[in-house]
Amino acid sequence: MHSKQLFFTSIGLVKPFELVLEQTMSVTKDDIAKVAKLARIQIDAEQVPEITHGINEILSLVDKMQQADTTHVKPLANPHDATQRLRADEVTAINERDKLMANAPESDSGLFLVPKVIE
């Protein structure tokens, strides 16, 4: 559940063009707790030091990458050398509500039911 890979994505630090230059990055235990909460990942208190250490190791790798001179390099949003294929504006989906709703733990009158989200 808490592999480095998963954290790497969920904390959103992979945005390559907004990193602060010339500054060593690290996170504190509080950062980890906050990020875990935002990502809805439950971690036990005793795991926090280990995870903090793990993330900081990844960040030190990022620090190393920051030292590369990218002055003349355009920001890269996606590593693939390809552009998005588009589709025509056509309705291709059919109504499969009954089938899809069968997967839901609870439903009523064609609506998915979830625990009440406001008081």
Partner: peptide, 24 residues
């Protein structure tokens, strides 16, 4: 005002029965 949604082929029309225009 498109016929279909931005990322899927579901219909983009106001006022349909709930969840009848929502695909995978």
């Amino acid at each position: 005002a498109t016929q279909s949604k931005i990322f899927s082929g579901s219909a983009n029309k106001f006022g349909a029965e709930p969840n009848t225009q929502a695909n995978v």
